[in-house]
Design a binder for these strands. Structure first.
Length: 885
DNA sequence: TTAATTACG
DNA sequence: CGGGTCGTAATTAAC
């Protein structure tokens, strides 16, 4: 039995646009309406299995309706550009899905639908019409059902003549009369003023049609009678306008509407291109185009060799042809990972070498190749591979192209890029996600050799496929230099630093822990006594009950789930009750104890007595590094109690020192450079105290008139500027009113006009390009910069201001690390670079190199990149990290 | 797993 | 009018 589905394309995409959150793809192109449309379309196909299917669109600006009524659809809001841009995307997608689409010059979608449905009806075919427009109900008949879209695009409600009678007590024909009387504001159809749905239904129940009502006005009285008589003509015209024209000369035949299921070969790549990953998965399509199977083999068709000793020999002879590899490891912490196996891909063959074999005598040649820095390696997360292999006694060198790192540069906000997603993004043959092969969490299990080998080998094969696409993308985004000359070399340096680790004085740390413990237990006792009960101090829920229910303290702030008890709230509560201050002290010490004493102790490697952090190079959207297992980028410094933790970070060899150097005001210096602001640059050229100088300029006073308060305010403004300021934020920070803060900011911009210009321009540029860049062309997309939602848009605007600053600072210290590494090597220095903390580098230095390093480190840091203002690095050293202040 | 909190630049 | 400064990681409780 034939079944035809007719979709009112314009109406549905319009509804989808407003129903969906503003999704955008990586290029910043909004795709929400296409997405909403497609989900609905796919569901219709699944549920109703049409044999014939059409999406109809309006065509031509002037439809025949305007010929009779100029104002038709006048006063309608212009289609937002975010929506009109999506029409071509939708039309392309429909073509690739194999869904026929019609448009006929000068007719609207509903007329096309009306005409097709009339013919289908006459032929006794089953028809379903999909739209959000109630007018469509006039087309309902014995064979024709109307699927009205409700609530966004998720629900549809089916209307046949029966249902229409139930709901309105009207025939489908009378729907037109209904609109003739009540009109339609959105189409600028007047109807009769003062007649809404209720009245119209009553009139139709009595008189049957618009004509009937007009003829019968004699039976009415009062205002209603006058109105109907005065607007009889309007009602007739409105009815005409509301009537769907069903005689459009159709240019398509029944066969043209046939739908033979989705065109799998083109549907996959088309969905992949739009980045509709969930839809791809739902259809279990890969983004691949199977037409060129030769160049992109299906994963299951790979020529995979599970290597034994004989194959290993063959492989060893082939090593120069290996173009990609993958090292499979387990666990999150690469310093503690086991290596499961290694896959190597030549363009033709894919070998899997189990770890047992890799360790054996037979694999010596392969291991030599792995260690050879002149043998280039391409792979996914080579940094992790390097570390995991290192702790198994297998050296690794020669990383050339890491596809994870390249993916991060191409879109740093999509950094959770696993290889399987990456492959889908580029429309390559599907790669099973790791969870599918290994299970996740507690269920992680290495599968048997066949499955394992095939999976790991398809990973290296995938690297092979992704590689050329990324090289092209990097070229298109001006980032090959950033990738090959900065991030790739840095990744090796990070691995060296991590393997080296930093020594921790375990006994000192334990002693510190005992000191904290005694203070903590004293505090806990006092708190319980004051509270009159014991409770779990670490539970914000229980603490809230004590403070606000039991003790009746005023509620300052609420969280999603209850009372807020954060430090800001507790500080406000301090004057009300003695318990509050003790809780604050407890919080401080409990944090130190659990994170920095106990947490750090757990991370000390027994074999080295050191902590080996893992720097992640693909997490932070601005280009910064992050540090894990343990995080050595947030060791306390602001409060003395916490700062003591730094005493346990010591040199690994007797007589050596810890030397630390940090950039002074690097972000404001970067701002001075990129904004080219005369005053800001002058401040740094003369190396003035930047906050004092800001206070002088903003308040218009000489240096000796700047008091501590003025300097504090200026400092807050400077921070605000770097982050993309708002008057509210500043007012909170300085405890002043929003108006005062706003005036303050205005004064700042009066003085630093270059900064104002920069802030305006960067937002404007971001809006136009869809992204911002750092000095080294690092890129961050800001799809929400054009959002209609104020919050989203404002956030994107602040990000546009902040990212080039923070990101350029990140570029600079990365450059410094590369220069530093090379200088240490070339000058054969024994000093070692150990840590990076965003604007600081930490070294351990032998006695006889101390004088050299004191000069060399700041010199290299300051010379990392030439800006229009000088960079400044301050160096210090001592017997531990605390002393190097 | 998520939310709240707190540590850092 | 709105919501309310950027970027991270670790710990704990409670689901």
């Amino acid at each position: 039995m034939d079944k035809l589905i007719l979709i009112d394309g314009n109406n549905v995409i319009y509804r989808a646009f407003f129903a969906m959150p503003p999704l955008t793809n990586t290029a910043g192109q909004q795709t929400n309406a296409v997405y909403g449309f497609t989900t609905m379309l796919l569901r219709l196909i699944e549920e109703h299995k049409p044999t014939h299917l059409i999406v109809a669109f309006d065509a031509g600006k002037v439809t025949f309706r305007h010929e009779g009524y100029q104002e038709y659809k006048g006063g309608r809001q212009k289609t937002p550009p975010e929506l009109s841009e999506q029409f071509p995307l939708l039309k392309d997608l429909l073509r690739d899905l194999g869904v026929p689409q019609f448009e006929i010059e000068n007719y609207e979608a509903d007329d096309i639908i009306g005409s097709i449905s009339r013919q289908a009806d006459e032929a006794g075919r089953q028809v379903m019409i999909v739209s959000g427009d109630k007018d469509m109900l006039q087309l309902a008949s014995e064979h024709t059902t109307i699927a009205l879209i409700r609530k966004g695009v998720t629900e549809i409600e089916l209307y046949g003549p029966e249902k229409i009678r139930e709901k309105y007590d009207l025939t489908p024909q009378q729907i037109i009369d209904l609109k003739g009387l009540m009109g339609d504001a959105s189409d600028n159809i007047p109807g009769v003023p003062g007649v809404g749905e209720k009245t119209a239904l009553k009139l139709l129940a009595q008189f049957g049609s618009v004509e009937g009502v007009i003829a019968g006005t004699g039976e009415l009285k009062g205002k209603m009678k006058e109105k109907l008589e005065a607007h009889a003509e309007d009602a007739i015209m409105s009815k005409k306008l509301a009537t769907i024209y069903r005689e459009v000369p159709l240019t398509h035949s029944w066969e043209d509407m046939a739908f033979q299921g989705l065109k799998k070969d083109t549907a996959g790549p088309a969905l992949a291109k739009l980045e509709f990953k969930s839809l791809l998965e739902r259809l279990s399509l890969s983004g691949s185009a199977p037409v060129d199977e030769a160049s992109s083999p299906q994963a299951e068709d790979l020529d995979i060799v599970l290597a034994g000793e004989a194959e290993l020999e063959e492989l060893t002879a082939l090593l120069t042809a290996v173009k990609a590899l993958h090292v499979e490891t387990n666990g999150d912490n690469p310093h503690r990972s086991e290596v499961i196996g290694l896959a190597l891909s030549t363009p033709e063959l894919h070998y899997f070498v189990p770890f047992e074999l890799l360790k054996s005598e037979a694999a010596a040649g392969l291991r030599n190749w792995l260690a050879d820095e002149h043998a280039p390696k391409n792979g996914y997360d080579l940094h992790r591979a390097d570390l995991a292999l290192h702790w198994q006694g297998i050296p690794f060198a020669g990383a050339a192209h890491d596809v994870q790192l390249a993916a991060y540069l191409l879109d740093p906000t999509e950094a959770s890029q696993n290889l399987s997603d990456l492959v889908a993004k580029y429309g390559l043959p599907r790669l099973a996600p790791d969870e599918e092969v290994f299970g996740k969490g507690a269920k992680y299990k290495v599968p048997e050799l066949d499955t394992l080998g095939a999976h790991v080998a398809s990973k290296s094969a995938s690297v092979l496929g992704v590689l050329p696409k990324q090289e092209q993308d990097l070229k298109d985004t001006a980032m090959p230099g950033l990738f090959h000359d900065l991030e790739m070399p840095l990744s090796r340096i990070l691995a060296d630093m991590e393997k080296q680790g930093i020594s921790v004085n375990t006994d000192g740390l334990k002693e510190l822990g005992r000191e904290f413990e005694s203070t903590i237990s004293g505090l806990v006792e006092q708190i319980y006594e004051i509270a009159g009960t014991e409770f779990n101090l670490n539970s914000t829920k229980q603490l809230g009950e004590i403070l606000f229910d039991k003790l009746g303290l005023p509620v300052i702030k609420k969280t999603k789930t209850g009372y807020s008890t954060d430090a800001e709230v507790l500080e406000k509560l301090e004057p009300y009750h003695e318990i509050v201050q003790k809780i604050l002290q407890y919080r401080t010490l409990a944090k130190l104890q659990s994170t920095y004493v106990e947490g750090l102790l757990k991370e000390i490697a027994p074999s080295t007595g050191k902590v080996h952090t893992f720097y992640r190079q693909t997490i932070a959207a601005t280009g910064r590094l992050s540090s894990q297992f343990p995080n050595l980028q947030n060791i306390p410094i602001r409060l003395e109690e916490g700062r003591k933790i730094r005493k346990v970070f010591v040199p690994s060899e007797p007589g050596w020192s810890i030397l630390a150097a940090d950039y002074s005001q690097i972000e404001l210096r970067v701002l001075a450079h990129i904004s080219d602001d005369a005053r800001l640059k002058e401040a740094f050229v003369h190396d003035m105290d930047i906050h004092t100088k800001t206070a002088m300029d903003v308040f218009g006073v000489p240096a000796d008139a700047v008091d501590a308060n003025m300097r504090r305010s200026a400092k807050a403004v400077n921070f605000g500027i770097v982050y993309g300021i708002s008057d509210y934020g500043l007012s909170q920070n300085l405890n002043i009113t929003r108006k005062e803060a706003a005036r303050f900011i205005e004064q700042y911009f009066e003085v630093f006009q270059g900064v104002r210009r920069y802030m305006d321009e960067i937002v404007r540029d971001a809006r136009k390009a869809g992204y911002v860049t750092t000095l080294l062309e690092r890129r961050r997309y800001l799809p929400e910069i054009n959002a209609s939602n104020y919050n989203l848009r404002s956030f994107a605007e602040r990000t546009a201001m902040n990212t080039p600053i923070q990101g350029t600072a990140a570029d600079i210290i990365k450059l410094a690390m590369i220069h530093m590494d090379r200088v240490l090597f070339e000058r054969k220095l024994k000093s070692r670079m150990l840590l990076q903390v965003h604007d600081e580098l930490v070294f351990e230095v032998p006695e006889d190199e101390l004088d050299t390093m004191k000069k060399l480190v700041p010199e290299v840091m300051e010379g990392a990149l030439k800006l229009s203002v000088p960079l400044k690095a301050e160096v210090s050293y001592g017997s531990n990290w605390y002393e190097a202040k």
